[in-house]
Design a protein around this nucleic acid. Structure first.
Lengths: 193, 193
DNA sequence: ACACTTGCCTAAAAGCTTTAGGCAAGTGCA
DNA sequence: TGCACTTGCCTAAAGCTTTTAGGCAAGTGT
């Protein structure tokens, strides 16, 4: 055995993300990761504080990757084009990397959350809304709605909620994007009680 | 110690649900439950197949409770009234019982899923759509959209995504419901490419 | 009163987490 | 080149969770 394998927090995080995609995020464990590197379990504790720390790092990696993809997809697009592009980033990422996507759903403590790419995500959604005519408080409402739909749809679809029933989930997805576009172009005023 | 505590699968499931709400669904463990009943760990294995079985039972309980509340809330309501009532059932349940709500998100194997209250949930959402003018394929699209928004919003809100930023999440929630109502009253035709 | 069922017990193996302390492979500096 | 120093991975060990196997005695039915 090579005396030094070259462990680093970054390599552990990447390997953990791969393991999550292959076996599911719940299977990501310090032991499993050590096994994967052919190394004793205790060795990982020099690079990672504990199991929770490892999972948090994977979550932060996933959020960064998602934000990077989102930024790339948004470049040069506006309006419905931009809306669909960002939405597809989330959906495609979740399908390609289900374990990482699950990791991104991890509840982060406030410290980690502040240092995460979470802000970039809401900024990207807000950027999309520049193509529509919404004033300030409504923009925030719309950001939250879009976030809810993207996350909710992807998460239900990944859980198998839409499989085995017609029509096809792809068709619903395009119709949902049509509907959101229509809604944003015609955002309703607050309803008086 | 009383020689027989009176364990049953039902009591274990209920106690597990309470534990989930108090400590979080990840803390629900056969050991913790045994501790709570003042009983040896191995004793639980006569009533519950294994850890996964226990969690599945809690998930099924939560789905049933949610469906019951939904049915009660929907009785005698239609249109936007019904929409808001069902939506609030999800949101309120998640706030009152965060652990149970997390349990309801558990990936069920197809067997358990078929025996779950999942069908009642989509039927209730479909019932709401009777107050709007949608024909068949669009109804399914709308059911999926509503499910996504309800689940997505509640889950982001529970994760703290909307706290510590103005405006208040309650306000966004009512505006989101207004928006969904408007959207359903004005459901867009498929956009031709 | 009897056998029978069954509820909870003890025992034990196996896996994951985490801490403490050690040795030797690399690194820096004279 | 040789030395001290850092640090990467190791062994050891304790604690907790899961799960199976087998046992005794509290209830149940006849």
């Amino acid at each position: 055995m090579a005396p030094r394998v070259g462990l680093t927090p970054e390599r552990l995080t990447r390997a953990g993300a791969e393991l999550a995609d292959e076996a599911g995020f719940e299977e990501v464990t310090v032991s499993a990761l050590a096994r994967r590197f052919g190394v004793q379990v205790a060795s990982l504790y020099s690079h990672v504080k504990n199991s929770h720390d490892l999972k948090t790092r994977i979550a932060l990696l996933a959020l960064e990757e998602l934000a990077d993809r989102g930024a790339a997809a948004l470049a040069g697009r506006a309006g419905k084009d931009a809306l669909a592009a960002l939405a597809n980033v989330y959906r495609d990422y979740a399908r390609e990397h289900p374990g990482r996507y699950a990791a991104a759903q991890l509840r982060l403590d406030p410290a980690a959350a502040a240092a995460s790419a979470g802000v970039r995500h809401s900024q990207m959604t807000r950027a999309i809304l520049r193509g529509y005519d919404l004033t300030e408080p409504d923009q925030t409402h719309a950001v939250r709605l879009l976030g809810s739909v993207f996350h909710g749809y992807v998460s239900l679809e990944l859980g198998g909620g839409f499989s085995h029933s017609a029509p096809d989930s792809d068709e619903t997805w395009t119709r949902v994007l049509d509907a959101l576009d229509a809604l944003l172009r015609n955002w309703p005023a607050p309803r008086l009680p």
